[in-house]
Design a protein around this nucleic acid. Structure first.
Length: 978
RNA sequence: GCUCAAGUGGCGGAAUUGGUAGACGCGCUGGAUUCAAAAUCCAGUUCUUUCGGGAGUGUGGGUUCGAUUCCCACCUUGAGUACCA
């Protein structure tokens, strides 16, 4: 009987699919357990070995929980809207739906061959209309809601309207836009329908607002900070400017405090919670209003409000700084300063926010010519603009206290603005003093002599007295922009009447994505949906009709933006509970049964995107009574990335006068990617000595990623023949190859992110066909801790593969099964129970790498013990089955069992088999172990000490010295000091 | 810049409460088997050494009988930083 893994794996994968072994039911006697992976975006490149890492871990856990008697929900699906399919459509004209369907097919085939225990009957795809119907439905719910600060939750917009009708908005305590004008019930009554809609929009949880974006006029699109390199677009290198655009926003800021508090109730990693805390950025301080001094008599009075965490330093304010985009800038700038200010604003518009945050060394700014008045001293304070103040943070303006803040200090120094010292006994001639705890305020009128806490309280009190400020808690969390100028995303269920957005009734959902000729923005700069010809709403028949029919009476234009990638992923975990329900996102029964995700595994790169937005939607849906819990995932683990092992050679291109270029391909394992190295080592050793050196016009160095498929994994040798036949390297066929000193053509290895563009991708398909899925699963786990980043090295897989072969041989040889009914020996039982204990602890702690080692040790030991006892080997198989399910199923059925091993109970640990009578004590001197001694565990401390002191090696170590102290920890260690 | 994470043999990593550093595997070395190779099996493999031993977990300090583990400072690498998913 041979271990024919390809045959075995195909057989059991078929068995599981046909028998629906892993189908979860929505009600059960068993306790529920929900294990979820972050669903993948199906990219065109297919899976590489890094992708399944988290899936394997969650699959092991899901299988383990089934052994432990749980009703396990372990679904999978696709986050199938996204940019890459759209880019491909722009390039090739192929509809993104087709590309996406093809990619999903590949993903599914690849996932299936790894033997996951997914319940595929629950698959969802965010780009399916039957799914995004619910994305649109949630959007409508958000639109129809406002956030009541008094109840601290979202409520239906009708309750707000009722208040407006009866008493106006004076007493309304809501999360809403800034600067909403107050009105009475009578005012409300007198308003036109449009005016009312405008006001309500300022309260809704999703609303239209002007937002600053990175606009690239050439590409006709908005770019992510990520897509901008050195102020120009990554694609094409076109200029990018900051621009205001009307877009849908989500009022996530309403939930800032609850999102922060909720972190206390969930078991997510500390680092992830920390990122979310920072993202939410709660700071307690005060808002302060400064009056702007009028320049001319007829200028109407204006104020600047700022948020500060240090109201105690108010007497240290010597200037104010506005973000260059601040709306007051154009109003207050004097004619003399206008040119300078305009130039500065223009220059800032070209810089990305990240640039502005990261660059603290270059100080720049401009004086507006205007002055504000200090609220207490009434002194004039110059108003500057500076790009270190960001428009999106706080109010986009700061009161600058150079003595207490490094950036203000640097700014003041650079522009020769006076620095007022308001700290008692602190020297600020060299740098600012920002240590709150040690602060004693001086030179500050009524705050003199107070510490930070007292002074803060008093300053706020005094500001309130004069009506120029109040205590305030500020959150850095900004409302999330929800519009995308893309094609391949969820269309909004929105049409416009007289410019005001109207929701389509939920009964008419889904509003399906229209067909377009081109996936690019229109010539007039509208989003791709502007190309659609059938994209208007007939409000009588309630259907999408041709644009020609738009009359703005009954037929209106539809929204042209689409939703962002995070829309569909913000509630999919709920949809899995009841994925085919046509009437509800999921039935109440299903959600009451499954409640929330018990274990969620995915990448840490989603820390502040998906994971924050999804929590926000969950809280909102909880407020609306749609879902039963307000946090969707109890426990979350981040899997680390598997990195690629890239290969490099250095290609030197020498260009000649009147001659073709020549190439030298330097294949050495000691290359470095630096200009100095090229100029010194490479030039001196390989170029300067060349006979035709005199004719060289110029030299190009290309430190080039080489496709790892033409490199020997173990020896790092480059296969020159394959290189010459490779389509990528056809230019270099006639080049001169330069080897290592030993004559071998080697590559330089570097660990990088695994990516198609670096030619370092390892495809799991090859691994599965060469070694089997069980080997792949074990090896991915064996590589190291789940959370850690670690490089892939295919050569190492032979270790786990030969382990599986050894495991097989424990049960069977050429003559068939060799297991027996003999009673196990003491050693057999010790090995088994040691393994049960360790593996169970490991799985509970998500330490999957150490259990693979434990299996290896167990199989090595049982092999040495020549164990054939079924009483040992059957439970061992159950232990291994979550990790290597195919081989386990096969041997299990060979052993005569009819039912799948996945249904068997996990073996029970019995500590009695591990009881020891003696211990091999390490004997250390000054903390260094020098020898060991076997001693009985029931010896007293004194007996141990006596035995150790009598040992001749102890005398040897002490060399006649008298020990100062002897520490005996029974069962652990003996340490002799002296 | 800010925030977070990680640094242990040639490599991936182990040491779960402060108690024998390097488990397990890769690679390498030697041997067995073979016409040969693959596969398999056995032994060795942190460095250094005058073969007694000595040193050693990024660097420098501290706490402790004892530190990879706790504390302080620093260095290096990686990740996130609001429209990549």
């Amino acid at each position: 009987m041979k271990y024919n893994f390809n045959e075995i794996e195909a057989k059991w994968q078929k068995y599981w699919a046909e028998n629906q072994t892993f189908k979860a039911v929505n009600n059960s006697e068993k306790p529920k357990y929900y294990v979820l992976d972050m669903f993948p975006y199906p990219s065109g490149a297919g899976l590489h070995v890094g992708h399944p890492l988290g899936y394997i871990a969650s699959d092991i856990y899901a299988r383990y929980k089934r052994h432990k008697g749980f009703n396990v929900l372990h679904p999978q699906g696709y986050d199938s809207f996204g940019l890459p399919a759209e880019q491909y459509a722009i390039q090739t004209g192929q509809h993104p739906a087709i590309t996406t369907a093809e990619n999903i097919k590949t993903y599914r085939r690849q996932l299936d061959q790894i033997g996951f225990s997914f319940d595929w009957s629950r698959e969802v795809r965010t780009s399916d209309a039957s799914y995004y119907k619910w994305t649109q439905w949630i959007f409508i719910q958000l639109f129809n809601s406002w956030f009541n600060n008094d109840t601290n939750k979202a409520e239906d917009i009708s309750t707000l309207e009722a208040v407006f009708v009866s008493e106006g908005n004076l007493k309304v305590n809501a999360v809403c836009d800034d600067n909403i004008e107050s009105f009475s019930a009578d005012d409300w009554d007198a308003m036109s329908s449009e005016a009312k809609q405008k006001i309500l929009l300022q309260y809704r949880l999703t609303y239209l607002a002007e937002t600053e974006v990175n606009w690239c006029p050439e590409l006709g699109t908005v770019l992510a900070n990520d897509e901008i390199v050195n102020g120009v677009s990554e694609r094409g290198g076109y200029p990018v400017i900051r621009k205001k655009m009307t877009q849908w926003s989500m009022r996530i800021s309403a939930y800032a405090e609850r999102l922060l508090q909720g972190l206390e109730t969930i078991d997510w990693t500390d680092s992830l919670k920390e990122s979310q805390r920072n993202w939410i950025g709660k700071s307690v301080g005060a808002s302060v209003t400064f009056n702007v001094l009028p320049i001319t008599n007829n200028q109407k009075p204006t104020t600047i409000s700022v948020f500060t965490t240090r109201p105690d330093t108010i007497f240290g304010v010597s200037f104010m700084t506005l973000a260059p985009e601040h709306e007051l800038v154009s109003q207050i700038t004097t004619t003399e300063q206008k040119a300078e200010v305009d130039a500065y604003v223009l220059a800032t518009a070209k810089r990305s926010e990240r640039d502005r945050m990261a660059d603290v060394k270059t100080i720049s700014g401009a004086f507006t010519g205007a002055y504000a008045e200090h609220p207490f001293t009434k002194e004039p304070i110059p108003i500057w603009i500076g790009d270190y103040v960001l428009a999106g943070y706080g109010t986009g303006a700061v009161m600058s206290v150079p003595c207490g803040d490094e950036r203000d200090y640097a700014f003041a120094n650079h522009f020769n603005i006076p620095i007022i010292n308001i700290f008692d006994g602190v020297d600020i001639s060299e740098s600012a003093f920002s240590d709150k705890e040690k602060t004693i305020i001086g030179n500050s009128d009524f705050l003199n002599g107070m510490n930070y806490k007292k002074a803060t309280k008093r300053a706020i009190y005094e500001l309130e007295q004069i009506g120029q400020g109040e205590g305030k808690t500020n959150y850095r969390l900004r409302d999330a922009v929800f519009s995308r100028q893309r094609y391949w995303g969820e269309p909004f269920p929105v049409y416009y009447v007289k410019g005001m957005p109207q929701m389509i009734d939920a009964a008419h959902l889904p509003i399906k994505l229209p067909e377009v000729e081109k996936y690019l923005p229109t010539e007039t700069g509208e989003p791709p949906l502007g190309n659609a010809t059938v994209w208007a709403w007939n409000s009588i028949d309630n259907k999408v009709v041709s644009n020609d029919l738009i009359d703005n009476e009954t037929i209106f234009p539809l929204e042209l933006n689409t939703m962002p990638g995070w829309a569909g992923s913000s509630f999919y975990f709920n949809r899995y509970m009841d994925p085919e329900n046509p009437n509800e996102m999921a039935s109440k029964e299903a959600m009451d049964y499954w409640q929330d995700v018990d274990l969620y595994i995915g990448g840490s790169e989603h820390a502040t995107g998906h994971l924050l937005y999804a929590r926000f939607w969950q809280k909102f849906l909880f407020d609306k009574g749609v879902v039963p819990v307000d946090e969707f995932a109890k426990k979350l683990i981040n899997q680390g990335m598997i990195l690629g092992n890239s290969a490099f050679v250095l290609i030197v291109k020498m260009n000649y006068v009147n001659e073709d270029s020549k190439f030298k391909i330097i294949c050495r394992n000691d290359l470095k990617n630096s200009k100095e190295y090229f100029d010194e080592v490479i030039f001196e050793n390989y170029i300067h000595s060349d006979s035709s050196f005199e004719k060289i016009l110029d030299i190009q160095y290309i430190y080039s990623n080489i496709d790892i498929s033409i490199i020997n994994d173990i020896t790092n040798e480059l296969d020159i023949e394959k290189f010459k036949n490779h389509s990528l390297y056809s230019d270099y066929i006639n080049g001169e190859f330069i080897s290592n000193d030993d004559g071998k053509y080697l590559v330089t290895r570097e660990v990088e992110k695994m990516s198609k563009s670096k030619y370092n991708v390892v495809n799991p398909d090859n691994i599965v066909s060469d070694y089997g899925a069980d080997s792949l699963r074990l090896y991915e786990m064996f590589l190291g801790p789940l959370e850690q980043y670690k490089p892939w090295n295919t050569a190492g897989i032979t270790g786990v593969h030969s382990f599986l072969k050894k495991l097989w041989k424990l049960y069977a040889d050429d003559n068939g099964l060799k297991t027996t009914d003999t009673a196990p020996t003491k050693d057999n039982l010790k090995t088994l129970h040691k393994t049960i204990k360790k593996v169970e602890d490991d799985i509970e702690n998500f330490s999957f790498n150490t259990s693979v080692s434990t299996f290896m040790i167990a199989v090595n030991e049982l092999g040495a013990q020549k164990c054939t006892s079924k009483e040992i080997l059957e439970p061992l198989l159950v232990l291994i089955s979550p990790y290597a399910p195919h081989i386990s199923e096969e041997l299990w059925s060979q052993l005569g069992h009819e039912r799948s091993i996945s249904t068997v109970a996990f073996p029970k640990f019995d500590a009695n088999h591990l009881v020891e009578s003696s211990k091999n004590y390490p004997i250390s001197f000054n903390g260094k172990t020098r020898f060991t001694m076997e001693l009985s565990l029931d010896m007293s401390k004194d007996d141990i000490e006596a035995a150790v002191m009598a040992h001749e090696k102890t005398k040897e170590q002490l060399q006649g010295r008298e020990p100062k102290k002897v520490i005996v920890v029974p069962g652990k260690i003996v340490n002799i000091v002296g």
